[in-house]
Amino acid sequence: MLRMTLSRTAQAIIMVWAVATALFFLLNAVPGGPVLALTGEFADPDTVARIEERLGLNRPLAERYLSFLGLLASGNLGESYTYAKPALAVTLSHLPATLVLAIPSILMAAAIGLPLGIRAARPGPLSGVIIATALVLFAVPVFWLGHMLRLAPGASTVFPVQGMTDPRGFYQGAAYWRDVSYHAVLPVLTLTMHQMAYTILITRRAIRAQWVRPYVRTGLAKGASVSRVEWRHALPNGAAPIFALFGNRIGWFLSGAILVEVVYAWPGLGQLTLAAIQNRDLPLVISVVVVGVLFTMLGNLLADIAQTASDPRLRSGKAAS
């Protein structure tokens, strides 16, 4: 266990270094520095030079990279140009808003998508309906889905079309969270439908792959009910791709939810990322991507653990890795 923890940690460190390095050089190679976003128009060479000096952009690239590595080693990603605050702190301050959308969407997608996916693995017309719905939801661009949802007759008069809280409210405590959940209804619904489509399709495929295995037939022959076979046998055995999907999607929710955040003007990581890229706020871009990568790795790790815990072969320790 200790060994695994150590190797995972080492892997994470190398990954963060690699991602940060790649971004550092990419961002410094491309045209259009951060100066413009900071001064507006008419910036004369003097002004530009002064800002470049203040941000350290006038030093040789190699020297800047070394000091960047120094910062990275101390867990610091530098100061955001736009906000003049530590980039990591700015990033983390936007994380809760994104989690407010991500966590309920993932949980609801699992709660609805898993049973539907398992059901859709059986033959019959109901499965066809489930699959068709999932396919269409999968194929609808998520920003379009979000926009259409709030134009839908009921939704448009009941739920807010943007924002995380009511600026007129100034709520505290429980009232604040009620306000947030009321604002979150439409964006969470959008993300849930999107994630649910993936869940149904992957689950169905995983379960169907188990249906042809002999043990399923044995189970049925012994008189076990279909749903018991599905849930007790097929699901644990076919769970790997399902866990992998959810692990993978954690990273997606942190970056891919950008579109939904933009549609609903939701003050989360996605909007921050867009602004950081447009403003060429290098430390902030790197910080957002590093956090995204760490969450993806965490998601993958959780998926591995969950899989180990649920897989009867792995659990009993008999299987070779």
């Binding site: 924002g163 933009v262 003007a265």
Partner: peptide, 20 residues
Amino acid sequence: VVFRIIKDRETALLALQRGE
């Protein structure tokens, strides 16, 4: 006075229509 940051024009317009 509250300045709300709304990037998408369509969203801002809907918010105006809705009185948000």
